[in-house]
Amino acid sequence: MRVRDDFELIISWIEKDSRVLDLGCGDGSLLKLLKNKKNITGYGIDNNIKQINKSIENEINVLNFDLNDGLGEFKNDSFDYVVLAQSIQEIKDPKKLLNEMLRIGKEVIVSFPNMGHWTSRMQLFFKGRMPVTSELPFRWHETPNIHLCTINDFIIFCGDNGFTIKEKSITSRNFIDSYMISLLPNFFGSVASFRIE
């Protein structure tokens, strides 16, 4: 199976033998890769029992918590990295969660689908319809995504809340997009990943 672009990047950012908390871990694939490649320890969190069961199948330590309840179960600085990979759009209060992530982790990694990608813009502009893309496959009335944003939105959000961006990387699956990304990241990037302190 092909590894998700943001996963490859996140794996490259994480140091060996570190402690990782993966928020919205799904079936635990990222933690499983990190365990095999970087010998990390840690936990995944998800609120869907089917995903919990898949994570257990993947031999990941997984916790059936709701991220909207906060991360009160964890002590300050108890992880080297706290990862939120393509789940921020489902969080009720992203600012509160990011502050919590920074409290319990030395470094925070956030990746999200870019709502500013040209395919989304075109759908809204020409069809007059809410965008449905490979990264955001839901129609407006069935989507769990309540807080979608563009790359520019996220950078402003970090600035407004005093989150320091240590590194960012914008990727795309499409060959032409990848070629143009450095020129207009918010137009050609489909997934953005940020390291925050």
Binding site: E57, L63, F65
Partner: peptide
């Protein structure tokens, strides 16, 4: 190393003795 599963069930405390697809899958997988 700990995993935690919260099972949706209307069975009350006795739910731990009752058949439930997700619960049994959790147990089986572990």
């Amino acid at each position: 190393p700990v995993s935690y599963a919260e099972i949706n069930s209307s069975g009350g405390h006795d739910a731990f003795l009752m058949e439930n697809e997700n619960y049994f899958k959790t147990m089986d997988n572990f």
